[in-house]
């Protein structure tokens, strides 16, 4: 491997140098354009407000028709061939509007999400455009796998799946749906909220959340959690009630690391009674509850206390999460 090609150091690569010299004539010599006055403005700090709007829309999405309905222009679809995303070639470009499907088959496709981001579709993926920006930017992922990169402020891009609805909170993530409608959300950067029937999961970078039709999102957990933790959490989330769930919860609690406070905090709202008490005790051992947060308050589902504890987890502003936890009424 030529070091010269990499960083122009080491043994000169004559071929690379000759091509550099030849192709250097194509380089731009132009300076920056003049900026018309009044074009740039300080950014609006709307994060908390947008998040509030996002959660309201997310809650409404439970009853939202899944049929593509509104129109907001058409999105560019770039059809690609190649065995991996690093080895792709553009085959053709088309466009798609609300109410229309994109099915990749053996190909791959890149979908421009208006001007707020991009979605890459793996082979054997089927998505419908529900809204292309009139109310929000919304896809329906029926099956397959998509990778989304969204650079707009949070709460503008939604993906409906058979099991749950995901809302982007400014990030990059993958979402996969199997033939039976179950799925998995994997967040690579930023945050994603995913919800079904009032059951919410807030998934940060490095974490995943499984989804099941009829149940919604499982408890978010970091990918580097132990396999025992992972398996037991699956039972807690989707294994029904009874002794098996209680035993699985014991495994989750015993295997939890400080970093897994993310999962335990979510479990506070997914357990009741004695089980909630056990989750409280383990979470308190990993991340002590702040002043004013009591066991009794957590057991009765005091929302303000849940928020206060969240703020101790080092996962982000409590102010921001307040908007997200608002539907989690005391229970």
């Amino acid at each position: 491997m030529s070091d010269y090609l990499w960083d122009k150091r080491g043994e000169p690569d004559e071929e690379a140098r000759r091509l550099e010299s030849l192709l250097g004539s194509l380089r731009s010599r132009r300076g920056a354009p003049d900026i018309p006055s009044g074009l740039s403005r300080p950014p609006l700090r709307l994060w908390p407000l947008v998040a509030v709007a996002a959660i309201v829309l997310l809650a409404l999405s439970v009853t939202w028709s899944r049929l593509p309905q509104a129109s907001g222009g058409r999105w560019q679809v770039t059809w690609l061939e190649g065995t991996t995303w690093s080895d792709i070639r553009v085959v053709r470009e088309t466009s798609v509007g609300a109410g229309e499907w994109v099915e990749t088959g053996a190909s791959r496709a890149r979908l421009a999400v208006g001007d707020i981001g991009e979605v890459q579709l793996d082979p054997s993926t089927r998505v419908a455009l529900v809204d292309t920006g009139q109310r929000d930017h919304r896809l329906s992922l029926a099956r397959g796998r998509m990778h989304a990169t969204i650079w707009a402020p949070p709460g503008q891009f939604y993906v409906e799946t058979p099991a749950a609805v995901a809302v982007d909170l400014g990030c990059r993530y993958s979402l996969e749906v199997a033939a039976d409608g179950s799925g998995i959300l994997r967040v690579e950067a930023g945050w994603v909220g995913i919800e079904h029937g009032g059951r919410l999961a807030l998934v940060p970078a490095g974490a995943i959340a499984d989804t099941r039709t009829g149940t919604g999102p499982g408890t978010p957990h970091y990918e580097d959690a132990s396999s025992g933790f992972d398996r037991a959490l699956d039972v807690v989330d989707f294994g029904g009630a009874g002794a098996a769930r209680r035993e699985a919860l014991a495994v989750v609690l015993s295997e939890a690391r400080e970093r897994d406070a993310l999962s335990l905090w979510h479990l506070l709202t997914r357990t009741t009674g004695e089980d909630r008490g056990r989750v409280h005790d383990r979470l308190a051992a990993l991340v002590p509850a702040p002043a004013g947060v009591t066991r009794e308050g957590i057991l009765r589902g005091d929302r303000a206390m849940l928020e206060a504890w969240w703020a101790e987890l080092g996962l982000g502003s409590a102010e921001f999460w307040r908007s997200w936890t608002s539907p989690w009424t005391e229970r």
Binding site: T83, W85, Q120, H147, T149, E188, A189, G190, W191, A205
Partner: peptide
């Protein structure tokens, strides 16, 4: 995601 190998499109900030 294992085959989600980097291309120029795989560009984003980090968490």
């Amino acid at each position: 995601g294992s085959e989600h190998a980097p291309a120029m499109d795989d560009l984003a900030g980090h968490a």
